[in-house]
Simulated scan of single mutants.
Amino acid sequence: MSHRSRLCHFVIDVDDLDQGVAFWAAALDATEEELSANSRPVYRRLRLPDSEIRILLQRTNDPKTHKERMHLDLESDDVEAEVRRLEAIGASRHDHQQERGYAFWVLQDPWGNEFCVLNVNFPPLLTARPPHPGHR
């Protein structure tokens, strides 16, 4: 028998689903999709504006104890402006990395989950996105 598979979710642990939706929807320009009433106490799902992969927020009370083994990378044509925008909605700067001649910021969401803000990697895809308000 043949079968199909695809990446459908990137899961992020949060301890407050409403705050998780507010932060990650603003950070990623995403919109919340409806889930069943049975799922909503534990999960919320976000649709990204330019991908069929969904962000699935999962409520957990487990404390964060170490670095993530998977994380999101956000690209920007103005890394510092994007870092400031993300700080304004609740992110915090964790570490500025410079590796192999490439500089980027490691940020943390309000739950301590790391994610990175990088310089442009995919120019045609980034230029297809509308600029954030206040972007120069």
Rank of each mutant, 00 (worst) to 15 (best):
G90L: 04
V42G: 01
H94I: 02
D78E: 07
D13E: 14
D29R: 14
L48D: 05
H135E: 11
D77L: 06
N121S: 13
R100Q: 13
V42W: 10
A25G: 02
L46P: 04
L86K: 07
E114C: 07
M70R: 11
D50A: 14
Q58V: 03
A22C: 08
L57V: 08
P63D: 12
S76G: 00
D15F: 01
L46V: 06
L28Q: 03
D29F: 05
L125N: 11
A81N: 01
S92Q: 13
R44Y: 06
A27V: 06
I55F: 06
S5C: 12
E34H: 10
R44A: 14
Q58N: 12
D62M: 11
R69M: 13
L125G: 07
R54W: 12
P110C: 08
H96I: 13
A27D: 03
G134F: 00
E87R: 13
E99K: 12
D18H: 12
L56G: 11
G134A: 05
F115Q: 02
S36Y: 06
P123E: 09
V42F: 13
R44N: 06
V21N: 06
C116S: 09
R84W: 04
I12P: 02
G101W: 02
H96N: 09
D62G: 05
L7F: 09
W111A: 08
E75F: 04
S39N: 11
S2H: 10
D50I: 02
H96K: 13
K67D: 13
R69K: 13
A26E: 12
L28G: 01
R59T: 04
N119Y: 04
H3Y: 14
P130M: 00
T60L: 03
